[in-house]
């Protein structure tokens, strides 16, 4: 009886601690977002008030107005969307096929493992070391200040991750499934499209989010390869609000809030696919 009471006491203490930790984690994740949101709605005076104004301030839409109507931030968003979506689609298309081949075929001299390692090794040095050669190449190709420049660079940048992530998902699937499909009369490509890809859809979704986030937030390459309003992306546009004379915190925050929305919506939309377990019941029981 006594022991039982002690145990319940102990477990309730543990439960409390669990919630306390969760609250800390949630605050750590959400406070900056809240701060961003409030700054985007605060007048410049309120932004620097001490002590900070957490709730009581007079909201203003001035920063949003400036961002979208004075500066062409809508255009940057469009550029960012095109670049992110196109390069993600390209990286998924090329990377998935490569990953499937590397997962399913063995090459002589263990070449499939070596190639896989070589692919990931291209991400082992800091990206900044490639920036000068890339700049020179894009200049010679007359692609500076164009979207294709960014699309090509981001696709190449994301490919190693796509290959490695998708390869893992493919390797988890039993070979029996595509072999059954091929004996049933399908080509390997048909088996891949009709049987394998639906089963790795959660993996594809996770990989797609990953690529999109990277492209959406990428700053360094975009800064170097594009300078004109027609080609710069959202992060470069935001950074452009740090001017010679002042830092436009309100405008930057307003842009940041808007920039967060698309990724958030996309993540919520594919959340269902992120939950694994679709391939349960495929094999044995």
């Amino acid at each position: 009886m006594n022991a039982e009471r002690q145990r319940t006491k102990k477990s309730s203490a543990l439960g409390l601690m669990k919630y306390a930790l969760l609250i800390v984690a949630v605050l750590a994740a959400l406070l900056p977002v809240y701060w961003l949101l409030t700054i985007s709605l605060k007048s410049e005076v309120d932004q620097f008030a001490v002590p900070p104004l957490w709730f009581a301030f007079k909201p203003t839409w001035a920063h949003y107005y400036e961002t979208f109507f004075v500066r062409p931030f809508g255009r940057y968003l469009l550029t960012s969307s095109i670049v992110a979506l196109t390069s993600t689609a390209l990286a998924l298309l090329i990377g998935t096929l490569a990953a499937y081949s590397l997962a399913r075929f063995t090459l002589p001299a263990n070449l499939h493992e070596r190639i896989s390692f070589w692919i990931i090794s291209t991400r082992m040095f800091p990206p900044i070391v490639t920036i000068v050669p890339l700049f020179l190449m894009m200049r010679d190709l007359r692609l500076l200040n164009t979207l294709p420049a960014l699309i090509i660079v981001y696709t190449g940048f994301n490919l190693p991750f796509v290959v490695w992530m998708m390869r893992g998902f493919f390797e988890e699937l039993p070979r029996d499934l595509e072999e059954a499909a091929m004996v049933d009369g399908d080509s390997r490509m048909g088996a891949l499209v009709r049987v394998i890809l639906p089963l790795v859809a959660p993996g594809l979704a996770a990989t797609a989010i990953f690529c999109l986030i990277i492209c959406w937030n990428e700053f360094l390459f975009a800064l170097i390869l594009t300078q004109t309003d027609s080609a710069i992306t959202m992060p470069v546009g935001i950074a452009g609000r740090v001017t010679q004379y002042e830092i436009k915190w309100g405008a930057m925050s307003a842009a940041g809030v808007v920039a967060m929305i698309p990724i958030l919506v996309f993540a919520l939309a594919v959340q269902r696919y992120l939950v694994r377990g679709l391939s349960l019941g495929a094999v044995k029981g």
Partner: peptide
């Protein structure tokens, strides 16, 4: 000749039913 042109049917030990 690739499997699909051989006109044979196979039952796998794991059954290999398409889960989706």
């Amino acid at each position: 000749i690739p499997p699909r042109y051989r006109d044979v049917a196979m039952v796998f030990q794991s059954y290999a039913l398409y889960p989706h």
